[in-house]
Design a protein around this nucleic acid. Structure first.
Lengths: 335, 335
DNA sequence: TTGTATGCGTTATCAC
DNA sequence: GTGATAACGCATACAA
């Protein structure tokens, strides 16, 4: 690899001069500048970003922690961040944290070791304390999809309790009174918060969610299928099903179809997230739109701002709400 | 950020010693080693990867160029590479190349500037020459989904002509003789190669693909819809439709349904790629499985091998074939 | 306008 | 075993 030194020699100028033309430095003669540029071009010079970062103490990359790329939810998330990064002329350094505290920690630490200027972190399994400590080590550390009070101004999150309430209210308004819930078996807050919201809304209508009407499984299509099978086998009575996400809703619909239940005529099924699948599957899913793209953009912009040292209000937080998307998997109750 | 120097002072030892305990160097007294480790822990030391890379001339990250993360095809691709990277204890530096030569070039150059030790590149719009030149600048440069003869030992690609033939043969075997093609309007090789394969197979059966039976549109669901509308409006006669990818197939099916054509009873529709959508949509898509995950793993492993200086045969290439996946969107022709 | 010298944080090559 | 010290490639304060 040709260095700044090589081209300095070849161009018969000093290191400093070359450095100046590279960085469009202020005082360089137009002639030498042209000459140096020509030599650089000829020798195929490429700046060494690492060396530059070392001396300027400014890394140009934005860190990103996510669970896994395959999940369309995370794909949307990553894509939004990538877009912000590209427009800000910064590179994306990505670390997958999987679904364990240990790997999440490793993912974040790696980014820290790389001295990324900013990072957007999706971490569901690490505890609050660890995250707070980690956040204090990077100026541009922003948490997404999680709220921690001590660093709330660095949190971009969704109000899951409200989301749970919205789901329940929608089917209640349509006359449903027998409601089942298909939830995730990951013990993360999202799940408990949404369930809590659902219970709150039901309670307002004097309805209780009994144990036989809620079942937990893996938050994917297979999980949705097995959950629905379990629900049917248990003899639970329901006209509406609230799923933890679209994949589970889709799985549930498959099993309902197999059992000759028409969706939404016999049973309504509501999803969550509004990933692309919601539009592709049949019937198209009525669901709650998780504004992950907007949230990710916000988080990336925020992280970049903090990294840049911009002083932002520390007493606010970045809370988002899902929005209801009406498609074809939920209907009024039959009389 | 605390540096190696800080902890050397705090521990009353030299820089060298600290460096040794960090790298599990050979000759350090067990007592000093423990002491230094304690100090490091206490002061929260983090190695600066950039500085390390500068002196060792060994970057620990693997570069990745792709078009866009949202596309499930690329998500699968990125996910497979991420998995390899994680197991090799290397970080992923990602650059999106979008769908233009200019941005593709920028994406690759950025990675080069970062001195990534290896990189897997998906580039469809840059010309061969440029790519060959770029490849020569990075030891671990591997191209995916593209074949260039001059660097064939660094190419991991799919035989699209064979893919096209497979599609045609499948429906021909099922008795279809009136075949329409819905293809991409991106002028990349994949498209022309697959069309070529289709034409070859049809020709063997004495069938010609007339201009009215092939239509081009954006390679997504909307494109599939508009293409199918165009096909129907033109009055073309067909009992089987070969789509450029699953998304287009899905769009085509939607429009067929709207026009009261049953799939596959009235019209068979075949996809390509076998992305997750193929299983989710109804009817589930009969399609050609693009082994992108395997190919990506292969490419990443190859890139890492080359980066490591491993001498691999330079006269072979890494060619893959799609595999037929029979689901519910293709059927025998009705008599 | 250009050149010299210093340091960024780390590893590695010497001595001791 | 341990400690100086010279790189690595680059930016920049200071001289010239």
């Amino acid at each position: 690899m040709t260095t700044i030194k090589d081209i300095a020699e070849a161009a018969n100028v000093s290191l400093a001069t070359v450095s100046r033309v590279i960085n469009d430095g202020p005082k360089v003669g137009p002639k030498t500048r042209a000459h140096v540029k020509a030599v650089m071009e000829e020798m195929g010079y490429r700046p060494n970003i690492n060396a530059r970062a070392l001396v300027t103490k400014k890394n140009t990359s934005l860190g990103l922690v996510l669970a896994e790329l395959m999940d369309p939810f995370f794909a949307t998330y990553a894509d939004a961040i990538e877009t912000v990064a590209r427009h800000a002329n910064t590179q994306l350094l990505m670390s997958a944290g999987s679904v364990q505290a240990e790997t999440e920690l490793k993912a974040i630490e790696t980014l820290l070791n790389h001295r990324v200027k900013a990072m957007v972190v999706h971490a569901k399994f690490l505890d609050d304390e660890t995250l707070i400590s980690l956040a204090s080590q990077a100026p541009g550390f922003v948490l997404i999809n999680r709220y921690i009070d001590a660093i709330k101004h660095r949190c971009v999150w969704l109000d899951n309790v409200a989301g749970g309430r919205m789901m329940a209210e929608q089917v209640l308004k349509l006359g449903h009174r027998h409601i089942a819930v298909i939830s995730s078996d990951f013990t993360i807050e999202d799940r408990t918060e949404r369930e809590q919201g659902i219970r709150e809304s039901l309670a307002q209508w004097g309805i209780e969610l009994t144990d036989s009407q809620i079942v937990h499984a893996s938050p994917n299509q297979q999980g949705g299928e097995s959950a629905m099978r379990q629900l049917i086998a248990s003899g639970a009575r329901f006209t509406a099903v609230l799923a933890y996400n679209d994949a589970m809703a889709s799985g549930a619909i498959n099993v309902l179809s197999d059992h000759k239940f028409a969706v939404p005529d016999d049973v309504s099924v509501m999803g969550f997230d509004d990933v692309i699948l919601a539009q592709y599957c049949r019937p198209q899913l009525t669901t709650l739109h998780y504004p992950i793209a907007e949230m990710a953009s916000q988080a990336a912009a925020l992280a970049l701002d903090y990294a840049q040292g911009k002083a932002l209000p520390t007493n606010t937080t970045y809370k988002y709400l899902p929005t209801f998307v009406s498609r074809n998997s939920v209907a009024k109750i039959k009389l």
